[in-house]
């Protein structure tokens, strides 16, 4: 309220600025007008070429892990059926499931199973979550390539993520503090990793009371975590196999100290030896119909599953 006068005088004082702004605006208008004309002209020939009758638009919201995969599927599907438009966004599995329950998305992509509590909440709002597995993923633990540590047990990982182990030398590495990175609570990967690694579900040492330690950095996206690890010699992070690149090193995981260490890969996930593999899923409200069914059929087709391999994930076993 009290700065109104000064703002006004600032506006009056710099009239020169406004003429520049007007020029810029005019230029922008001209550019966008040019673009508009161009884009309007292109769809016509393609529309006459294809014979597709499918049309409609729908949304896919959810897992950050599944996003690179479903956006390729969506792009290919829209190329095959120009009248279909698909919007993909990946803020996290939790967001996707909340959107499905609130009725703001058509498909929820998930990197963990829906919980009993979420099903209850959905049914209270008249939504029936319908589950379709579309691929599998090897949840990879990554470090900087210069890190000498190459294998860890799930118990060691749990100790690192709960803050019991804070120095790399305790697991056979350099004498340096561990920078522990995680996704935030929106992420299905966060929830899956908590259950299967932090709380060691399915192991004799399992403890449901364990939580991520207070020093763990909660990051808003998987890309950010991977790029942090690429630039920080002492960082550790977990990500879907599709996000792993050659700037980071994957850690071989041992289920217990006596089991063999297994590197995450398509082969080790398919034969079931990699201990922290998980399903990637689509959830819809009731069994899918119409254009959404056509899309999911495409995803599960041979052609669609080829995309799964290219994106670094594991196809659904026949």
């Amino acid at each position: 309220m009290f700065y109104k006068n000064s703002m006004y005088s600032a506006m009056k004082k710099s009239q020169g600025k406004w003429s520049i702004l007007t020029l810029l605006l005019l230029a922008l208008l001209l550019v966008t007008a040019g673009c508009g004309g161009a884009s309007k002209a292109t769809p016509e020939p393609t529309a006459t070429v294809t014979e597709s009758v499918l049309s409609g638009s729908f949304k896919i919201i959810g897992s950050n892990t599944v996003t690179p995969l479903s956006s390729v599927w969506a792009e290919n599907f829209m190329k095959m059926h120009p009248k279909v438009s698909i919007a993909v966004s990946g803020p996290g599995t939790g967001v996707g499931i909340a959107s499905l329950i609130d009725g703001t998305t058509d498909i929820c992509q998930a990197s963990r199973l829906i919980t009993a509590k979420e099903i209850e909440q959905a049914q209270a709002k008249g939504v029936n979550p319908y589950e379709i597995q579309i691929a599998s993923d090897a949840l990879s633990v990554i470090v900087h390539p210069s890190n000498p540590v190459s294998e860890l047990t799930i118990e060691q990982l749990s100790a690192i993520y709960t803050g019991k182990i804070t120095n790399w030398k305790e697991v056979g590495g350099n004498d340096a503090a561990i920078v522990v990175l995680s996704r935030d609570t929106n992420s299905g990967t966060h929830a899956f990793f908590k259950e299967h690694v932090v709380q060691m579900q399915g192991l004799p040492t399992a403890d449901k009371g364990l939580e991520y330690g207070g020093k763990v950095l909660m990051l808003p996206s998987t890309e950010e975590g991977v790029s942090q690890v690429a630039g920080n010699a002492n960082a550790i992070f977990y990500a879907g196999l599709g996000y792993v690149n050659d700037k980071v090193k994957t850690i071989a995981i041992k289920k217990t100290a006596t089991d063999p260490a297994v590197k995450p890969s398509v082969a080790t996930t398919l034969d079931g030896t990699y201990p922290i593999a998980r399903p990637l899923l689509f959830y819809t409200n009731g069994a899918p119909t119409g254009v959404i069914k056509a899309f999911i059929d495409y995803c599960l087709s041979e052609e669609g599953q080829k995309v799964v391999l290219e994106a670094g994930f594991i196809p659904v076993g026949k």
Binding site: P91, G92, T93, G94, V95, I97, A98, I101, D102, E118, Q121, D184, T185, N186, Y212, G213, G214, K215, V216, L217, M218, L219, P220
Partner: peptide, 30 residues
């Protein structure tokens, strides 16, 4: 940084009130 622990010094990773709202409102059921 987004760490959940009480920050002791300014060079600790931390989460502010705005950041915690932004990072978890998405998966909160109404």
């Amino acid at each position: 940084g987004g760490a959940l622990a009480m920050p002791v010094s300014p060079v600790d990773p931390m989460t502010t009130m705005t950041a915690v709202i932004a990072s978890s409102i998405g998966n909160a059921i109404r």
